[in-house]
């Protein structure tokens, strides 16, 4: 039985109320269409753009950018973190450079990247890759450094060599940190995607937004914003799914 109190305490209540208020304000003309389109017209545009193939096509272009950039960036982050975390010389070589890079906002590099790589796909993918490398590196590096030395000692006392130690103790122990890093990297990939697509795109979600802006089509802009949000959400739940599988040994998940 759903009582009145349950409804009032439900977490969906306030978003739904906001949506209704918004729709009401649009219909009564309090919010004009060129300021913000009504939810109903946003939904209509969503279906229309999906049916015409406009949205799937541009989404595919954007997805490719984000996925390629994320894949390159996070792989680079993993490789560098492993080299810096497992080799003393690697740490001395790599870590200082990364720490310098860390202080540099990647967005500020956009002009340089445009000069180097032009205004095509390369710049967009490079920006995403460059930005998404850092969280993976920092988290994995810290994860490797933070391995419980007592577990390492125990494994060594049972005669595990270096390779077995890395495979059985260090990497599994650093896995939670890696997954945290990947989650941050994914959301940064979507963020950089938005920024990179402002750079003279001829296809993609950002391109659609710019066209819509010129035509004052706020409904299309809202549709694209929704898709950006869904991209971030999808990435996050992907990592969560991997986490609950790979980290089944953790007590919170064990008891659940």
């Amino acid at each position: 039985m759903t009582t009145k109190r349950d409804v009032l305490q439900a977490r969906w209540l306030s978003p739904v109320a906001l949506l209704l208020l918004w729709e009401l304000a649009s219909r009564t003309g309090v919010i004009p269409d060129h300021i913000l389109a009504a939810p109903s017209s946003v939904v209509r545009s969503l279906f229309g753009m999906t049916a015409s193939g406009e949205l799937p096509l541009n989404l595919a272009v954007s997805l490719r950018r984000a996925a390629l950039g994320f894949a390159i960036g996070s792989s680079l982050g993993v490789v560098l973190a492993l080299a810096a975390g497992l080799l003393r010389r690697g740490d001395a070589l790599i870590d200082p450079i990364i720490q310098i890079k860390r202080t540099l906002p990647v967005v500020a590099l956009t002009p340089l990247f445009i000069i180097w790589f032009g205004i095509g796909e390369t710049t967009k993918i490079a920006l995403i890759a460059f930005a998404s490398m850092l969280p993976v590196y920092i988290n994995l590096h810290q994860g490797i450094r933070g391995i419980d030395i007592r577990l390492v000692d125990a494994a060594r006392s049972f005669g595990l060599g270096r390779a077995a130690l890395i495979g059985n103790v260090i990497l599994p122990g650093a896995l939670p940190s890696l997954l945290t890093g990947l989650r941050y990297s994914l959301s940064i990939s979507v963020l950089m995607l938005v920024i990179a697509e402002q750079v003279n795109a001829s296809a993609g979600l950002g391109f659609m937004i710019q066209n819509a802006r010129d035509a004052m089509r706020t409904d299309i802009i809202v549709v694209c914003l929704m898709v950006y949000a869904l991209l971030g959400l999808a990435g996050d739940s992907l990592i969560r799914a991997i986490e609950s599988k790979a980290l089944a040994w953790r007590p919170t998940l064990v008891e659940a």
Binding site: L151, A155, F158, G159, L160, N168, P172, L175, W249
Partner: peptide, 15 residues
Amino acid sequence: RLLPWKRVWQNVVLG
């Protein structure tokens, strides 16, 4: 000092 990410029996035969 059992490795928490390995099941008990895997810990026993570690290495």
